[in-house]
Amino acid sequence: MSKEHDAGMSLIVKVITRFTVGLILLYGIYIVLHGHISPGGGFAGGVIIALSFVNLMLAYGKDVALKKLPRKTISFFESTGALLFLSIALIGFFGGYFFLNFISKGEPFRLFSAGIVPFCNIAISLKVGAGLFAIFIALVLLKFDWEKKE
């Protein structure tokens, strides 16, 4: 095996993770996009997206996971989600008030319906996913000096 596969867990875990991590990411995106139709929503979907990257990091070590999602990208997504949610709310001022549902409602039970609700879900999922993965990285990877010597 090559050198970069030395870190992380055993071969069995790595092979299983290679098969399942994409499915977990897809399921998170599905939960986010169907948040206004079926149970779920931005928060749960964002946590599932973060969990897929956590799974990658636990199985393959920090190098592979941080190559897929570098720290700059994490902070970019975190800030983008917050600003997107706030700007959706602010655009409502053009029609009248804060958080105005300014897009047409559409037909219920369709994917493209409910006005601004899916966009808010996407913004919250970006924020939650990037933020929780950043917390995980900060709590697991960063270590004090006296911890390293043990």
Binding site: G35, H36, I37, G40, G41, F99, E107, A114, I116, V117
Partner: peptide, 14 residues
């Protein structure tokens, strides 16, 4: 009013 069939989602986001 919101067009979202998931009522929880329509309440927390609208």
């Amino acid at each position: 009013k919101t067009g979202a069939s998931n009522l929880v989602s329509s309440i927390i986001l609208d």
